[in-house]
């Protein structure tokens, strides 16, 4: 936990960033190395753990059957909830972490789905079982075990990994039902009957933190404490922007904004390929252990 920095340290940090060399030797657009583990919560439909530097998060996906919304009868629902555990920092005990948790949950939600719950990232119509009556509701839960900055980006990677690990069981409708009645259904227990998730459209989020006049990618907690403003941009594999959230701080010049967006698009290309590679490596590790 960063307590606070002296004036000298702050100066050193900002000067370093202005010169293109950060405190741990990284360049402005370098992401820290991260590792992905899949299926760590066996009782969830999908789960993942991502560690990047000292940041450590676990995400899980649980699918439950329920009624779809009346306004969208042919789509399932997705809910995202992030929690900052007290193990991450003592001030997260009790209600201390609530503000941060809420901010992270909303930012993720906005990037994966539009505000109204639809969105190109997850194919919601694939979650329908019986139109208008029965659908799968996905509950995506994230838990921050330890934080060293850049929580939003790491959580986005973890959500993508957990979704890639998710299996939705097949549902057999055993009796057709009239409009008012409940349908009878049987849920398959056979793991081979699970259908996977297509995560190729799930974006990654790049948070650009502006320190002085330069922006950096993947800020540590120390660097975040010196930010004037930050902007989180979600970019998918097609190179399209899926969501933007401006995080706190001072105002940004619009031209600077556009420049930051193009930087984010550039960085996202390499990040997406690294994330996909890590997920595949994690999957093969899991298969080896079987």
């Amino acid at each position: 936990m960063v307590v606070g920095l002296s004036a000298a340290e702050r100066r050193y940090l900002t000067d370093g960033i202005a010169q293109g060399l950060r405190n741990d030797g990284r360049g402005l657009y370098d992401f820290r190395a991260f590792s992905v583990e899949l299926a760590i919560i066996p009782q969830a439909n999908g789960s993942a753990r991502v560690r990047l530097g000292a940041t450590d998060v676990i995400t899980s996906v649980k699918a439950e059957l329920g009624r779809p919304q009346a306004s969208r009868p042919s789509q399932g629902r997705v809910e995202i909830n992030i929690e900052c555990s007290s193990t991450a920092a003592p001030q997260f005990e009790g209600r201390g972490g609530e503000d941060l948790s809420l901010e992270l949950s909303r930012a993720l939600y906005r990037s994966l789905l539009c505000n109204n719950g639809t969105g190109p990232a997850i194919d919601l119509s694939a979650l329908t079982v019986i139109e208008g009556k029965l659908c799968w509701n996905l509950f995506i839960d994230g838990l921050v075990l330890s934080s060293d900055g850049n929580l939003l980006d790491v959580l986005a990677i973890a959500v993508k990994a957990a979704l890639s690990n998710t299996g939705i069981p097949k549902v057999e409708v055993t009796s057709a039902a009239a409009a008012e009645q409940e349908a009878d259904f049987e849920i398959s227990d056979n793991p081979d009957d699970f259908s996977g998730f297509d995560v190729s459209h799930v974006p990654v989020i790049i948070t650009l933190t502006k320190v002085g006049r330069t922006y950096i990618v993947d800020a540590t907690e120390e660097e975040e404490s010196q930010m004037s403003s930050a902007i989180s941009i979600a970019v998918n594999s097609a190179g399209h922007v899926c969501g933007i959230t401006k995080r706190g701080g001072a105002g940004l010049d619009p031209s600077v904004l556009l420049d930051m967006i193009s930087v984010a698009k550039e960085v996202s290309k390499s990040l997406l390929s690294t994330v996909d590679a890590e997920i595949m490596a994690a999957e093969s590790r899991g298969d080896d252990q079987m």
Binding site: A7, A8, R11, Y12, D15, G16, Q19, L21, N23, D24, G25
Partner: peptide, 22 residues
Amino acid sequence: SCNESISLKVRENICRLANSIR
């Protein structure tokens, strides 16, 4: 003295030492 800026070479050395310690 904290207003004096540090050259990139010295900064790289500081970084390298810091990482060695880490």
